[in-house]
Amino acid sequence: MINFITNFGFSVLRLSTPIIYAALACTVTKKAGLLNMSVEGMMLCAALLGVISSALTQSVLLGVLGAMLAGCLVGALISYVNLVGKSELYLTCIAINLMATGGTTFALYMITGAKGTTFSYLASLAVPTIQIPIIKDIPLLGPILSGHSLLTYLAFLCTALIWWLLFKTRLGLRLRSVGENPHAAESVGISVTRIRTTAYLIAGAVAGLGGAFMSMSYVAWFSRDMVAGRGFIGLSANNIANGSPVVATIFSMLFGMADTVANILQLTDAGIAYFVKMLPYVITIVGMVVMSVFQIRRRKHMKQKAVAAAIQEAAAEKQT
């Protein structure tokens, strides 16, 4: 039983990692006033480039940097088309995701000659796992918290970093002002285009880390469509969190838990396994629905209270 709990806890952290990165990447652009619907494409490109560059350079660091660069490049492309080309964001992101899916498959095939994976074709590296000294010896918590990929710990660090960036720095102040009232920002000479481009580049780098996790930690190779909607799951975690990096991380972990459950249950029956595979996606939809209903209810309730109070007040005034 204890074994099960530690395994489960460990898996939740592991499987939440890419979703956290995705959610944070979305948070940055959301604060700048734009939805980042191509985080999926960013992660996919990053995952591939991480594998390629780590295989070529035989350096984990350069591999991860390559992944981040890939994310940034995708971010740059989106901001160019969206901000300079003034394109519809939805369509742009659809096109980018389409190109990322097809493009990575194409590259994969060109490299390996078969459409499957880079496994055994490319000698790519994995990000090292870390045993945290003292903590690893704590019973129960130790095996859950210790022994993760460096990128998993970095994900939580990123949450703090993004929070600091958004609320404590000059860039964050400008970013929030652009998101809340772009005309105001523009009128004091803050370039909305530049800030939003910066937001997309940061998002690209963060999503790049998520992609790197997929191909350099989760597994140590690239396979087609390996992000499998995790970018979108992160996007919905961010949507639910309404722009707060901390809440986004918490919800990412919830979705990560669904993924874990799916992973554990999968070991049984092959036919039922397909239903289990649906779980993360079903839970994401359910999560979105529940949160929206909750928010709408709360807003409605507050409004009803305000209305009732106002009407009561009006009646009281009439009496006097």
Partner: peptide, 26 residues
């Protein structure tokens, strides 16, 4: 129509674009 950011303070609104900084911090 005022070009102000509602959730920021008056001071933050006024210095927006010419913010004083300490290192990279606002």
């Amino acid at each position: 129509h005022f070009m102000l950011v509602p959730s920021l303070s008056i001071a933050e609104n006024i210095v927006l674009g010419i913010e004083p900084t300490k290192a990279v911090m606002f």
